[in-house]
Design a protein around this nucleic acid. Sequence first.
DNA 1: AGATTCGCCTAC
DNA 2: TCAGGTAGGCGAATCT
Length: 897
Amino acid sequence: GSSAAKEQRIRLGAEELLEGRLGFAPYTQGDRRLGWLLTFSPSSWEDEDTGKIYSCVDLYFVSQDGSTFKVKYKFPPYFYAATKEKTELEVEAYLRRRYEGEIADIEIIEKEDLDLKNHLSGLKRKYLKIQFDTVQQLMRVRSDLMHVVEKNEEERDAVDAFESIYGVKRVERPQDYINCIIDLREYDVPYHVRFAIDNDVRSGQWYNVGVSGSDVLLQRREDLLQRAEVHVCAFDIETTKLPLKFPDAEYDSVMMISYMIDGQGYLIINRECVGEDIEDLEYTPKPEFEGHFRVKNVADEVGLLKAWFSHMQEVKPGIYVTYNGDFFDWPFLEKRAAHHGIKMNEEIGFQCDSNQGECRAKFSCHLDCFAWVKRDSYLPQGSQGLKAVTKAKLGYDPLEVNPEDMVRFAMEQPQTMASYSVSDAVATYYLYMTYVHPFIFSLATIIPMSPDEVLRKGSGTLCEMLLMVQAFQANIICPNKHQADLEKFYNNRLVESETYIGGHVECLETGVFRSDLPTKFQLEPSAFEQLIENLDRDLQYAIAVEGKLDIDSVTNYDEVKDAIKQKLVSLRDHPTREECPLIYHLDVAAMYPNIILTNRLQPPSIVTDVDCTACDFNRPGKNCLRTLEWVWRGETYTAKKSDYHHIKRQIESEMIQTGGVTSSKPFLDLSKPEHLLKLKDRLKKYCQKAYKRVVDKPITEVREAGICMRENSFYVDTVRSFRDRRYEYKGLNKTWKGKLSEAKASGNSIKIQEAQDMVVLYDSLQLAHKCILNSFYGYVMRKGARWYSMEMAGVVTYTGAKIIQNARLLVDKIGRPLELDTDGIWCVLPGSFPENFTFKTKAEKKLTISYPCVMLNVDVARTNTNDQYQTLKDPVSKLYTTNSECSIEFEVDGPYK
DNA sequence: AGATTCGCCTAC
DNA sequence: TCAGGTAGGCGAATCT
């Protein structure tokens, strides 16, 4: 009944009205409907009987006939709290009293806690699941309890210190249950993400939607794979601007707005800026990218804005598409509309958030193609403008006009400007339809976020979302976000920064290398002798492991072997030679993910003696602990620990200037991170004065990390399923390449184009998945990662560095390595080096092998196979099986010219 | 004047 | 509530 509630009620009403006007009327009764989930956003609803407000998620659906509707899905927000052992019930009762009217319900539940000692034995941890009616209530209780937990932690530290100094246990004070809350978990998961994870609901999927009373029933239709036909509007504006300046919505105005809806083009002209009326026009840069534009000439800017808004209200697009619209087009339109007294938000529901640099609506998507280009296109920064992207991805040269000429051309050559204006809309529309749409809605079916977020979030956030889904499904409690330890010492000095040694890079030779320029080689006969000796072993590996064939089924084994042997013998006997080279790039496919998978690497698997000692599986001769090396690198301040503490004591008694010259407050009143910031500033000055430099030379140190081979495999499972998803796209890319050459042979131009499109599409999908796949490695070092591990990142790169350096040792003896970078070697081999050979089998199968590749892979398999890989077969009896695992394999590109 | 740091961008 | 990582080249700015 408060004024805030009243305000919210009014807001809800206005929202409902607008959404109804724009096609998303609420579906509250009647027959079950079939809908494709376009997007979802947090919202609230009012219980009509009690007048109470509850949080809910609004789901926006598109039907098969293109019509739209929304439902309100009730879902209570919650988070978890951990208590001291065996105080759960008391704390629960206490919290219910303390937050009466704020907490809706508390349940005590059990979760797998991978931080819990000996959890592999089946031990689980109890958590209080604290539920609320609204997100606001959750936030209030959460911030209150955060302070409680922080205070409890400080007190525990003080108790520990007391006990360690006096060697006696301090007598516990009478139980105060507020002191028993020791941790909060999953309190920072956004509400709509929580909803999507817990209810397994994703954008981009079909559901049978039913309502019964006030409840919504969703049933996923996995049989429907085709995406719904949602109205897509791609638009682009041209504005006036001052010479050599960027347009400014304070005084510049919109000259034209061009847009394409579902393939039909429109152009609205502001005759204040454009010299003459423009007729309908066509801009079709390529047969498959048709652009027919209907033109509307209006008197002035306000007319233009009104015309566009009303057209949008009529068509009701579910998806708006721009190129850099977050930053330019939307804010410009919003400001110009406001200038004329029109609120864009009230017209079409879109609002710009300048803090976030985004423009979004609750019920429609705004998908800015520039965001896709930056994160997923794999184009270098210099080629991320719309023009360059059009060339690279759509394969045609777009119209270009110098921005300095635009305002003048609008008056003097209006036709030129009109064509130019629509050309950007065409490029944006087709870029979206060909790449962005399939990509975003494919990811949205696995990532528990709205399409807008799937498009804009960093790749690390996407990884974390996938991990949280997997953790939820395995009943694992998520760790809190990692915080860097800001007060670490090394060698009696404060650590300024620490990291790990990454990829290995070497430039070995520079110059011009061509397959038709004879090159000198100084080979090592002993290496060839070795290859000859190992030939049987290597070929059998290729047949059995790479080809997954039975050796006895091969009919021409000796023939192939002799051919290779002959070449190796001749190279061994004439090691000094000059001949045309074979230029090869040897590289490990998806190296980091495969190192992770082979070694079962995941942040919770990094264990110490303490973890193992507490574990039931810790027996003499155990093979569940795998030890791998990595290299730490850190820089310390030059000052000693004693200097640091001295300065700390000094600063603690001082007044610190905060902001202006006049305002200052005691140092101890500042927050903890502020303390360390100020302290480090002071320390830097001290170092500079006393030691003439702030930081010492970087220190490196080889360290060992223990990897538990039995830890719950949810992380590697997530990586594996993502890797395999990418392989699927790579496979489809190959399939369509086959179809493309078939189509070319048949000369059917429609089929050629279709196949061509599918080839680019799948290549783009697999590349984008590569980027997110690699992020599972980078993620573990991300600031604030829930599953953080420097050790794991270090093990991944160090293992990779050893693989590439080993390969180089071999290449050194049989040819000339030119360059190494992380996972690949560019090299030249003598032209007479054995290359590709084909085994034939009784079943008429063929297996083509690349000998240089096989030779390297045998080496990799010998040094990197993990014979300790364990898989949980029976969760009840805790039975594990042990396998050998190695998915790290070289691939060969080339030979190149 | 020479060394070091910083910003920017790329390769992996 | 913002955030994949390290290696490394190059030119400009800044420090000594």
